[in-house]
Amino acid sequence: MNNPTDIKERVKKNIIWKSIFRRDYRNTVRDRAQAIFGNVFLHLHPVQVREGAVKLRFTWGMGGITFFAFIILVITGVVLMFYYHPSVSQAYSDIKDLEFQVPFGVILRNLHRWGAHFMVIVVMIHMFRVFMTGSYKAPRQFNWGVGVILLVLTFMLSFTGYLTPWDQLGFWAITVGTNMGAATPLLGYQGPFSEFLHITPFNDVRFALLGGSRVADNALLRAYIWHCVAIPLVSVILMFVHFWRVRKDGGISKPHK
């Protein structure tokens, strides 16, 4: 009764255990398959994959690493939201509080900041890998396109997050960045041909981005909502389209001659 195998057996027979895991795992073909499609997270995978998919040298795991970086950012980001107000009067001191008041606040902020840099780096390397293996060729053309949008969204996620601490770095990076909006042909007040549409600093692209004609409270609120809600939502949806298509297009690409 007191030896470990006994305890293990008893735990496995317990109704709570059984309700969670449903069946015993016996390392048979059937159970190995069941382990994948019986689990909502794992069933993104097929039950069997090519040998190459378990070797690092083909994909470098880069797409998976990008996704994992995104998960870390969502988790740390949600925790950060508990400590942050998107208003000019409070944002900066909230970040200072993270540094000096909140337990592990510094690590939390660091993880989010370096995780973001990391995701931008690995998504570019993922794209490079897909290019170098010619994996954008038929039948994966569409998924490459989905990937390009994900790349842009990754930049946008990082860019909108820049403003949130409301420090000099973010403020001026956003100022420089959104000034480009003013230069949009036709739709920006400094862009070519905009006079034909009666575009002014108060109705152009830059105004729409900032919710005003300068970087102020509205711009901070907009950046915050894009950063914490809108872009992550679109990204998650597209990531699932992306993963779905990886499988529907026949799994990780293999030499096709």
Partner: peptide
């Protein structure tokens, strides 16, 4: 070329294991 004549392996556990290791390393 590399990978041209490859067979299939079970996802569980080889692939799941390597994903876990990569996630931990990251």
């Amino acid at each position: 070329v590399d990978g041209e004549n490859e067979g299939l392996v079970d996802t569980f556990k080889p692939l799941v294991r390597i994903e876990l290791i990569i996630a931990l390393a990251v």
